[in-house]
Design a protein around this nucleic acid. Sequence first.
RNA 1: GCCCACAUAGCUCAGUCGGUAGAGCGCAUCCUUGGUAAGGAUGAGGUCACCAGUUCAAUUCUGGUUGUGGGCUCCA
Length: 636
Amino acid sequence: MLQIELPDGSVKEVESGTTPYDIASGIGENLARQAVAAQFNGQLIDVSRPLESAGQLKLITQNSSEALEIIRHSSAHLMAHAVKDLYGDEIQVTIGPAIKDGFYYDFYSATKKFVPEDFAVIEKKMAELAKEDLKIVREEISRTDAIKMFREMGEEYKVELIEDLDAESVSIYRQGNFVDLCRGPHLPRTGMIKVFKLTSLAGAYWRGDEKNAMLQRIYATAFQSKKDLKAHLNRLEEARKRDHRKLGRELDLFSFNEEAGSGLVIWHPKGAMLRTVIEDFERKEHLKRGYDIVMGPQILKTELWQISGHYEHYRENMYFTEIDEQSYGIKPMNCLAHMLIYKSKPRSYRNLPLRYFELGTVHRHEKSGVLHGLLRVRAFTQDDAHILCRPDQIDAEVKGVMQFIQDVAGIFGFEYRMELSTRPEKSIGSDADWEQATSALRSALEDSGQPFEINAEDGAFYGPKIDVKLKDALDREWQCATIQCDFTLPDRFDLNYIGADGDKHRPVMLHRVILGSIERFIGILIEHYAGSFPLWLSPVQAIILNVTDNQAEYAQQVYNQLRAAGVRVELDLRNEKLGFKIREAQMAKIPYMLVIGDREMEEQTVAPRYRDGKNLAAVTAVDFAGFVAEETAKYH
RNA sequence: GCCCACAUAGCUCAGUCGGUAGAGCGCAUCCUUGGUAAGGAUGAGGUCACCAGUUCAAUUCUGGUUGUGGGCUCCA
């Protein structure tokens, strides 16, 4: 007999070989019907898996949050089953996992090309197979038998997967005439899959390696209820509405131009204004925190890039130019000039740390397929700084940067999460250096009191790093800030300082960005605020609307006054009705509309209307300018 | 870079089974001077992304180039 403990603390005595399903049945028919899987001693298993030892058992029911991933994983099998039934010998199955918002399955075919019109057919077949309510059965077979079986079926990708497995035996899942290699767990029956939808087609490399064959991936999603699916589709719709590429055009912020080249942002007046506001903010914040503003050239001799190692490791991403038979590299990073500044004179340990900040525009030849609006471009400006410090200062400096990140994220209303990336397999530098840098980063993270994850062996080849993922209003994550520890470049450039002992010592260099790239950050900001920027960021803070031509002269006066007071204001004197002008200002997401009719003109005021539709009490131009200055000062 | 799809007016999109194109919004002019999300009339805008090929004829078919979108790989 086995003792099985349930989540409520009760203990069941059952015979060895009893399944979670049996136990569920013993508790209630409903529970048994709704059990999709079980958690046994922390491990997910099928409800049909015989228990062979004592332990803690938790049944996972259909509507619980843990069930969703299992439902999606089984849905992936259902889709593969349907595709196999429909297109049979033309297709080989590969893998199909559950992912964040659904699942996918990758297929190989030399002849069949999936098109979106296939979706309805596949969905229909899936619905039929679900309706048949086929039993999903797990089997353990030996590795050799599995290889033999899949080879006979012509499933070479499965064979390759099993051949790479280390185990004696593998588990397979059968449903009707379909069988797939899988660790599981899965739903007990196909009938438990009720709400699913195929969403898109894509190419994907076999095993994620660009040297491998290109597979056809079908993305799909599954939910526990139609309501959840609908909510998900609504979220996608909301994301589409907020797309920074769409809003960028509608709000006249920026454009791209085919003749200029792809991945090159052209900032229109309003976008350039937004950028200017952010850059001014950054300069002020950096000066406040003890950084020095520096500026380096856009091109540097190629020999210098050879010393830094960029020529060897990063050349295919760089642009080069030649002048008077001298080759120059256009900078893809800002560190070189900063190191030359450090090197320009002898340094003492007393002067460290030195914090060099530059809004540095870099050019990188990114592969054409990766470009994406403002989020991935070929010319962008980083809020880049390099901190040159003594090894014993790393901790305090990293903490300072983390505080900086926290402050800035708070100002823009972002939540974020951090990861510590540790030494990768291919790396340079001594063990002691790595140990010191990694523990400095780790202790700074621990002292911050915020949770962080370890990204094992994902550091840069020259040092460990902290990556910060910003979470936007729609819960999507974006990599922006990073802090990297670097021992290599100071070495390659022979940087040193004179220590208290009178000897030369090697400084450590921290590379760090707060926003990352201004372009990417603005792209995220646009989507985060859905284009309705807070007053201090709005490229146009207010627009003056006259009711009739009668107030044109006074409106012009108010405009001049506000402009002189530093308010980013526009003037709409067009011969249009007030309602029309309000509508346009509203669609331009301008925070304040300043209405001027005869009443206001007489009282020498303006009547502000906020973009949410609320009318505010009339104020004088001076008072309005004072209000804007006060609001803006909170961030500047 | 790779896979798939797409490219028609400033924007959003119709359309031509091969015979050089249309709407709404926007823009211009005129009428209207109207108080919180669209007043009316008239008009001007297009080598149908670019370059080749097939054809009597190509915006339409084929190939290439460029650009864009969804992914993969890579990344701030």
